[in-house]
Computed example of a mutant assay.
Amino acid sequence: MRFKIGYRTIKTAIGVLVATAISQALQLDSFGSAAVITILCISVTRKNSLRVSWHRFAACLLGMILSMGIFELLGYTPIVLGLFMVLFIPFVVALRLSLGIVTSSVIVLHIYTHANATVDLFMNELLLVVIGIGTALLMNLYMPSSERQLRVFKKQIEQNFSLILYEFSTYIRKGDSEWIGAEISDTVRLLDESKNLAIRERNNQILKEEDQYFHYFQMREKQFEILERLMPFITTIHGSVSQSENLADFLEELSKAVSPTNHVPYFLGQLEKMRETFKEMELPTTREEFEVRSALAYIMHELQQYLLIKDSLWNEKKDTNVKKRAF
Rank of each mutant, 00 (worst) to 15 (best):
Ile5Phe: 05
Thr12Met: 13
Asp192Ala: 04
Ser242Ala: 13
Ala59Arg: 11
Leu141Ile: 12
Lys4Ile: 08
Ile111Leu: 04
Lys195Val: 12
Leu17Ile: 11
Leu308Met: 14
Gln156Pro: 02
Gly69Glu: 04
Ile5Asp: 04
Leu230Gln: 07
Met123Ile: 14
Gly269Gln: 12
Asn321Pro: 02
Arg148Tyr: 04
Leu230Gly: 02
Leu62Lys: 01
Glu291Tyr: 14
Thr187Met: 02
Gly32Tyr: 15
Ile89Ala: 05
Arg51Tyr: 05
Ser98Ala: 13
Leu197Glu: 07
Thr261Ile: 09
Ser255Pro: 01
Lys279Asn: 08
Thr277Gly: 01
Val36Ala: 14
Asp211His: 13
Tyr142His: 10
Arg2Thr: 09
Ser98Ile: 06
Lys310Glu: 07
Ile70Phe: 02
Val93Arg: 05
Leu207Pro: 02
Leu74His: 06
Phe214Pro: 00
Glu288Trp: 06
Val108Ile: 15
Gln218Ser: 15
Leu26Lys: 10
Arg96Ile: 12
Leu251Ser: 08
Ile65Thr: 10
Thr261Phe: 05
Val130Met: 14
Tyr171His: 09
Ile172Asp: 04
Tyr171Ser: 01
Asp120His: 06
Ser294Cys: 09
Glu291Arg: 15
Tyr171Cys: 07
Ser242Thr: 06
Ser162Thr: 04
Ile42Cys: 05
Met231Tyr: 13
Asn262Val: 05
Leu150Ser: 01
